[in-house]
Amino acid sequence: MKRVVSILAIALLLNSCDDGDLIQEDISFEEAITQSCSTNNIIYKLKEREALLLEIPSTSFANDISLTNTIIDINSSNRVYYRFYNGTVSAANICETIPAATPIVTDQWIASNGKINIKTTAIKTVNTTENSSRITGYNHNIFFNNITFNKSIGTQFYETFPFGDYVTTAVTLPFLFDKTVEICSNSNIIYNYTSSESLTLDIDKTLISDVVTPLNTPRIGTIGTTKNILTYRLFSGLLTGTYFCNTTVPTTPSISQEWNAATGISNVSGIIEVTTTTNGPNSFKHTIVLKKVTFKKGNSTFLLGDNFVYGDLLTTI
Rank of each mutant, 00 (worst) to 15 (best):
P253D: 06
L304S: 06
G164E: 14
K151T: 13
L215K: 04
S133C: 11
D18S: 10
T120N: 03
K292L: 05
S36R: 00
V126S: 13
I271Y: 04
L239W: 01
N188E: 02
S16P: 11
Q24L: 12
I142L: 00
P214W: 02
Y243E: 02
I142H: 00
I189Y: 04
N93G: 08
I223L: 04
G264A: 13
T316D: 10
N146R: 13
L52I: 10
T276A: 09
T106W: 12
T120D: 06
E273K: 15
S266N: 10
S6P: 08
L230C: 01
N131W: 14
Y85G: 09
L13F: 15
S16A: 09
I7M: 05
L54D: 03
K227V: 14
I104K: 14
I56G: 05
P214N: 00
P103G: 10
T200Q: 06
T287D: 09
T231K: 01
D312Q: 04
T34F: 08
N145H: 06
T225G: 11
G221Q: 00
S185D: 14
E50N: 15
T242A: 00
V268S: 13
L46I: 08
S185A: 14
V181N: 07
Q156E: 02
N145A: 11
I265G: 11
K47V: 07
E55D: 09
I272H: 04
I183D: 00
A51Y: 14
P99M: 13
S300W: 09
V167I: 13
I203M: 00
Y85L: 05
T200F: 02
A11C: 15
T68L: 11
I33P: 11
I189V: 15
N192A: 13
T248P: 00
T294W: 08
K47W: 04
P250E: 01
E130F: 12
L207H: 06
P103W: 08
G164I: 03
K296S: 09
T240Q: 05
I98E: 15
D178Q: 13
I110D: 13
A101F: 14
Y310N: 08
N267L: 04
R219W: 01
P103N: 12
I27H: 08
K2N: 13
K45C: 06
P218Y: 00
K227C: 02
N188T: 11
T294G: 12
W109G: 03
D178A: 08
D312I: 09
I10Q: 13
S236M: 01
L234F: 02
I27S: 08
L46W: 01
P218M: 01
S28H: 13
L173N: 04
P99R: 13
Y191N: 00
I288Y: 07
D178R: 12
G237L: 13
P214Y: 03
T120F: 02
L22Y: 04
G221L: 01
I42M: 09
K296Y: 10
T242C: 01
S77D: 12
I135S: 06
N192Y: 07
C184F: 07
S187I: 09
I74Y: 07
N188H: 10
N131R: 14
L22V: 14
Y310Q: 07
D18R: 08
F177T: 03
E197I: 00
I7A: 04
D64N: 15
G264V: 14
L215T: 05
S266G: 09
N15G: 10
I116C: 11
T121Q: 12
S38N: 08
D165P: 06
P218C: 02
T121S: 07
K119F: 05
D64L: 05
K2I: 08
S6T: 11
V274F: 00
T169W: 02
K285D: 02
N279H: 10
